[in-house]
C-alpha cells in the first residue's frame, strides 16, 4: 500500500512536484471560470474540515474547494463539539475517523500537534495552519499568485515584512520561496526575528526603505500588537515609520512588482488606507484578493493530490 499523502509541510516536495502542483492548480483555476464550477473528481469522498482555532478565509476556501470537486465536506469547529464536554482532541479525531471519512483538514493553535494527529490517523491529513509552525496551502497559494504574475520564479526578489517570529505563513513561505530559487529578504525589527536566524539563509533588513525600489514582490505579514509577545516592540508609530506600506513607498515600487498579504489586513498598520484604495482603482499591483481567489484552486489541487 502506498504511504498516505499527508500535507503537513512542503519540505518533502521536490521542485518538480511543486511545479506539478502549480500546473494542476492552473487546470482547476480554469474550472472556476466556467458557468458550472463543479467537477466530479472527488465524488463519494468525505472530507472533514476540523478547525480547533478560528478561521474564516482558510476554512471557507477549503470548503468551496471540496465542493467544487463534488466531495462531501463536513465542517467541525471547537465550540460546537464535545470538546466542550471534556473529550480530548485526539479522541475526537479518532471518533470522527471511525465514521469512515477519507481526509481530514486540521487547523490547531499549537505547533506540531497536527503531526501528532497525522501519525495517529489512517487517513490523509492536511495542515490548515498549526501554531507558529507551518501553513503549507497558504505558501502554495502565495507561490501560485507569484507564478501567475511573472514569467519565471528563479531570481525573483521578494521582501517579507513584519512579524517573522510568530508567523507560520513566513516560515512556510520562506522555505518554499527559497526552494524555488527566489531571493528572499526579511524586513523586521530584531525582536520579531528568531534568534540566530542565519540558518534560514535569507537577507535581513531593518526597514522597508532598504528594499522598496528593488523588490518584485512585497509580502506584508499581519501584525497583531495585542499579542503578549509584542511587548518588546516600542509602538505603532515606530512600526508605521519603518515597516508600513504607505503611498510614497508604494510609488517607489518598480513596474510590474506586486504586493501581497495573507489577510485579514489591518488597514492603517501594515498597509495604509490610501494604498488599500489603490486596489479598487485597478492599478493591479495589489494581489490580496487574487490570493484569496487562487486559494480555492490551490486547495482543489491539494485535495485532489491527497486523495488520488
Amino acid at each position: 500500500m502506498d504511504e498516505k499523502k499527508d500535507i503537513l509541510s512542503l519540505d518533502k516536495f521536490s521542485v518538480k512536484e511543486i511545479n506539478d502542483l502549480l500546473e494542476k492548480t492552473d487546470s482547476f483555476a480554469e474550472i472556476l471560470k466556467r458557468d458550472v464550477k463543479k467537477v466530479p473528481a472527488l465524488r463519494g469522498k468525505t472530507i472533514i474540515n476540523l478547525f480547533f482555532e478560528p478561521s474564516t478565509r482558510t476554512k471557507v476556501s477549503f470548503e468551496i474547494a471540496a465542493k467544487r470537486l463534488s466531495a462531501d465536506l463536513i465542517n467541525f469547529s471547537e465550540s460546537s463539539s464535545s470538546l466542550k464536554k471534556g473529550e480530548s482532541e485526539i479522541d475526537t479525531l479518532k471518533t470522527i475517523n471511525a465514521m469512515k471519512v477519507d481526509l481530514i483538514i486540521i487547523r490547531h493553535s499549537d505547533s506540531g500537534y497536527i503531526n501528532y494527529f497525522a501519525d495517529a490517523l489512517p487517513v490523509p491529513v492536511i495542515n490548515a495552519g498549526d501554531g507558529k509552525h507551518e501553513h503549507p496551502t497558504q505558501a502554495l497559494l502565495d507561490l501560485y499568485t507569484i507564478y501567475k504574475s511573472f514569467p519565471g520564479l528563479t531570481g525573483l526578489k521578494i521582501g517579507i515584512v513584519g512579524d517573522i517570529l510568530n508567523s507560520r505563513v513566513a516560515r512556510s513561505d520562506i522555505k518554499l520561496f527559497k526552494k524555488m530559487g527566489m531571493d528572499v529578504t526579511v524586513i523586521a525589527p530584531s525582536m520579531l526575528i528568531p534568534e540566530n536566524f542565519s540558518f534560514f539563509d535569507v537577507k535581513i533588513a531593518a526597514g522597508i526603505d532598504e528594499v522598496i525600489s528593488e523588490v518584485d514582490v512585497l509580502y506584508m505579514l499581519r501584525m497583531q500588537f495585542e499579542r503578549q509577545d509584542k511587548k518588546y516592540y516600542p509602538s505603532i508609530s515606530e512600526y508605521n515609520k519603518f515597516l508600513s506600506l504607505d503611498l510614497p513607498r508604494f510609488n517607489m515600487m518598480k513596474t510590474g512588482s506586486i504586493i501581497m498579504h495573507p489577510g485579514p489586513v489591518n488597514t492603517g498598520l501594515e498597509i495604509s488606507s490610501e494604498v488599500m484604495e489603490m486596489e479598487e482603482s485597478g492599478k493591479g499591483k495589489i494581489k490580496i484578493n487574487t490570493q484569496v481567489t487562487n486559494g480555492v484552486a490551490v486547495r482543489m489541487a491539494v485535495l485532489y493530490y491527497a486523495l488520488s
Partner: peptide
C-alpha cells in the same frame, strides 16, 4: 531550546 529547531518547528524558545 532557542535556536535553529525552535525557529523551524515554531516552538517558543528558552534562551
Amino acid at each position: 531550546n532557542e535556536g535553529y529547531y525552535s525557529a523551524m518547528l515554531g516552538l517558543e524558545g528558552i534562551s
